[in-house]
Design a protein around this nucleic acid. Structure first.
Lengths: 346, 346
DNA sequence: TTGTACGCGTTATCAG
DNA sequence: CTGATAACGCGTACAA
């Protein structure tokens, strides 16, 4: 049995398409008699308006898009994203939207934007001038960026990454650490979704060093890593394989830090006695791991919620504040300790 | 500046809509001259085909739907879902689809199905005869169920929950535990997405008890809980508040078990010395928590992957095998111990 | 209160 | 061989 369309109902009931549509969407505009008859026939044939055609007519999709900078299996390796999704989800629900995850299509983020069937986009780490931004604008599609560079008419939700990074590094330095390693986000070939955050963090680290009369660039070991447990594990392995033994490792994300902890445990290095480890994000796992992870708590859920709210307002044309900076705070748990005054290492 | 449509390009170029469309989608069917001219004008005006209209024409959405039994913030509290999403994501990517998360719309799962703008649905815990199933069928929409009841033409991907539950409980009993508590999934008012799994698990538990010449129903304490850390925490609190102190707690999910561990730690009960705890799923956190969680490892990623593959084949009309049962194995880590032979409790 | 016509991109079918 | 016409699906502004 083929699909039942509005025309079938119109033909069989003897009324026009318009009347059938009104029977469902604007009952007051047709006679009670017509409505009853139409609804009965529709019910009988199991008529469901085709969402495809319905969306075209209404010029809306009923869905909000989350434009991912990387493939889904990779993106969800970081539970911070999961938290953001939860926050966006709360708003979607409230507004009767679904949430469409848009990975790079045929390896191209742009291709994803071109064909995205959504009413608006939440993006990650966009900056004015990027090609992706131009494309979104060309499609006249409302969008919000999480962790991007704001300013102008650019709608952004994020934290002050520079200040947070500085606070972390000040803490590490004040603990007496002299041999510090930073495990940073790897540069992405595609959408450079973390480049702004990365730059901000480095600025913060540098400021901390300078306030201690030290030189970041000359003193600190920097490793790049995929933001995942595996990434943190590999980066730490590279460090030790090259015989570089920092006494403190500052990771740009908790999942990376989790990998660091795992590798250190495997090679028998005690945390925090021999090496301190600090993460960033404060994902749920940070409280589960032992010792509990010292990290920067940033509100992932709230970031998603705000971005969702802002986007919905942008779609409705009622947006007021385009620039949202949420609080982030250093949470001192158990993986960062004051350096012992003995010889730092061999 | 308003949206540029195919009609604008047709009008300005002097060709018809057909030719414009061919210039993009079937270059061989128009002259080189026409193509060049059309493409130039389109480029110039920044023409992007409206995905809304394009989808209607092609009768496809370019998206796969994941029908969630509960609101997004709640659903993602369990990382097992996150793993499933990753698996589905891998397939989406490969086929150029996006992934649409469909929460209950206006508190109704059915409403979500009605308006879902997707080419097919991956659902959770559906069983033949359910209202939701009828609705999906009415929409002529291909679907796959994860953790549902199979048989007939019902496409299912899952594990043997009964056997896995039996194995868990056999192990617990063989460790000498006499006072066992089960923390089960709470019954859902909406889509009963966990009822089949729950039934299967109970059947398995019961079988284990019987093979030990004991009676499950009479002996075991059963608590229901939301599948989240918070849920496990609350259930454990209820147990202890009622002065019921099992020596082994069997949770139906790892997140619940994580909550159990957290509460036991808070009230100073040693795991596994005083109480053993067993989870289900083997989410990444099970290896992060200390002591490491004894649990049933079921392949969340693979479940998603298989479901995605099956759905894509169903959409293409090339599906072969409709019933996929994946392996699940008991992983003995550190939260379940042999009962000491001393008095079990006061 | 109800019907006509339009919008959108693709493609089967037909005309030149 | 090239290019145009018309139909698909629905909702709704506008006309009757």
């Amino acid at each position: 049995m083929p699909r039942v369309t509005i025309n079938d109902i119109a033909r069989i009931s003897g009324y026009s398409k318009t009347s059938v549509s009104f029977a469902f969407n604007d009952p007051g505009r047709i006679s009670e008699k017509a409505r009853t008859r139409i609804l009965a026939i529709a019910e009988d044939l199991g008529y469901i308006p085709d969402p495809l055609a319905r969306n075209l007519s209404l010029r809306r999709h009923g869905s909000i898009g989350l434009l991912l900078p990387e493939v889904i299996p990779l993106a969800f390796l970081n539970s911070h994203l999961s938290q953001i999704v939860q926050g966006i989800g709360e708003i979607c629900e409230r507004n009767g939207h679904s949430l469409t995850l848009i990975p790079p299509l045929r390896e191209s983020v742009q291709e994803g934007v071109r064909s995205a069937a959504v009413d608006g986009l939440i993006t990650i780490g966009l900056e004015p001038g990027m090609e992706t931004v131009e494309l979104i604008r060309q499609r006249h599609m409302p969008f919000v960026t999480i962790d991007g560079r704001g300013g102008g008419g650019f709608p952004v939700v994020g934290i002050d990454d520079c200040a947070a990074a500085r606070e972390v590094m000040e803490y590490v330095l004040s603990c007496g650490h002299r041999d510090v390693a930073v495990i940073a986000f790897a540069d992405e070939p595609q959408l450079a979704s973390r480049s702004h955050v990365k730059t901000q963090r480095f600025t913060g680290y540098r400021a901390a060093f300078e306030s201690h009369d030290r030189r970041f660039t000359a003193e600190v070991m920097v490793e790049n890593a995929e933001s995942s447990i595996e990434g943190g594990l590999a980066a730490t392995r590279r460090l030790w394989d090259a015989d570089r033994h920092p006494t403190a490792i500052v990771a740009m994300s908790d999942v990376i830090a989790l990998g660091v902890l795992q590798h250190l445990e495997e090679i028998g290095v005690a945390v925090p006695d021999e090496v301190s480890v600090i993460g960033f994000d404060d994902i749920p796992e940070a409280r589960i791991v032992r010792p509990q992870l010292t990290t920067v708590s940033q509100p992932g859920y709230e970031k998603g919620r705000r971005a969702g709210e802002l986007l919905v307002n942008l779609i409705a044309g009622t947006a007021v504040k385009l620039h949202h900076v949420l609080p982030a705070t250093l949470v001192k748990r158990a993986t960062c300790a004051v350096m012992r005054t003995s010889a730092t290492r061999s």
